[in-house]
Design a protein around this nucleic acid. Structure first.
Lengths: 182, 182
DNA sequence: CTAACATTTGACCGTGCGGTCAGAACCTGG
DNA sequence: CCAGGTTCTGACCGCACGGTCAAATGTTAG
């Protein structure tokens, strides 16, 4: 899984063949088949693992904040802190999300994690609206926009690997706090 | 090119092989090679064509608006109006952008169009700041976030093909106007 | 009608993919 | 010093890809 993350982050989804991943740690690709039922399972486990780590870091920080703008800021800030500390993993994750293109109406097997992230943001925003601290915008639309803006760090990092992820997070937090506040 | 757009929009980047595109209009794939130097050239021409159409629609509307929030709103609104009227083309475009994953630091040959779009937004925001109508945020970061939020319509449309694109545009315009205003 | 040109076909490359598997190599407890 | 299980290799599938090309088939001007 570490090798898969490395190859995905360094060379992109298209170059992340079983052979490339195996070469990266100097084993034959048969080893991957020995430990994983297939390439799909390997990628699913990578997605699940990174998502679990991110959730473990973010959840307590978000839940400790009051509903509304503080929770929103905690979400954005803690998400980008995690990204800053796990750049390779995050780039790999987004490579998988973007690279495994599904058919019309058919979700990619990896997209479940992404959709559940959008759902979590939607609930966070709805809670803020009920608390009266956020305005009457369309929660799902705003959640889609926010997640897309967060995930755009991968684009930032691709063009400029030393980009200031935390500064980007500050801008995002301020932008959405002002834009969505009551 | 129309067949390429159809297949990209309906079946995704991964399924858009020369054979699939040729089948879609009932010709052999040799025809594509006869008219295009290669798959890359075909996709580049699709990108250039859609981007040119979008620019032709948006430019007069954006330039007619005063710098700052009106120009920002004109940009977001006209962009999503165009998207609403050209859903297939836009989904195809974003499939190309997301699907053709480049290597570390190496831009995909199709990414030039996307980067220039970010640049255009950056300039638009800087002009608004100079006019005193937009706040002192990081223009490129905000531009990346805005373009990512706009491009997320493809995700919206994939899960819900009848999504209200114009309503999404209204939310986005309001969000960024408030979030970026002075 | 014919000659010249434009277009299209379908069989055919070479390549790299995900995946398989018999057997070699490597542990490790008795 | 084995015997048994675990791990690993490297050759090997079948397949789909992008791309090529001689030959067949339109098309059109003189």
């Amino acid at each position: 899984m570490a090798a898969a993350i490395d190859v995905l982050a360094e060379s992109g989804f298209g170059a992340a063949s079983l052979a490339a991943i195996a070469d990266h740690i100097g084993v034959s690709k048969g080893v991957i088949s020995y430990y994983f039922a297939g390439k799909d399972r390997l990628l699913q486990e990578v997605v699940a693992s990174v998502l679990a780590d991110a959730a473990a870091y973010m959840r307590p920080r978000v839940e400790a904040a009051p509903a509304g703008r503080p929770a929103l800021r905690a979400y954005v800030s803690s998400n980008l802190e995690f990204i800053d500390a796990h750049r390779r993993e995050i780039i790999a994750l987004i490579e998988i999300f973007n690279g495994a293109s599904p058919g019309r109406g058919v979700a990619s097997p990896y997209a479940a994690g992404h959709r559940s992230a959008v759902d979590a943001v939607t609930r966070l925003l709805e809670a803020g609206q009920q608390a009266g601290d956020l305005g009457p915008f369309h929660p799902r639309f705003a959640a889609v926009a926010l997640r897309a803006a967060i995930d755009a760090v991968s684009e930032l990092l691709r063009e400029e690997p030393e980009a200031d992820v935390l500064a980007y997070g500050s801008e995002l937090a301020a932008l959405f706090e002002r834009g969505l506040g009551a």
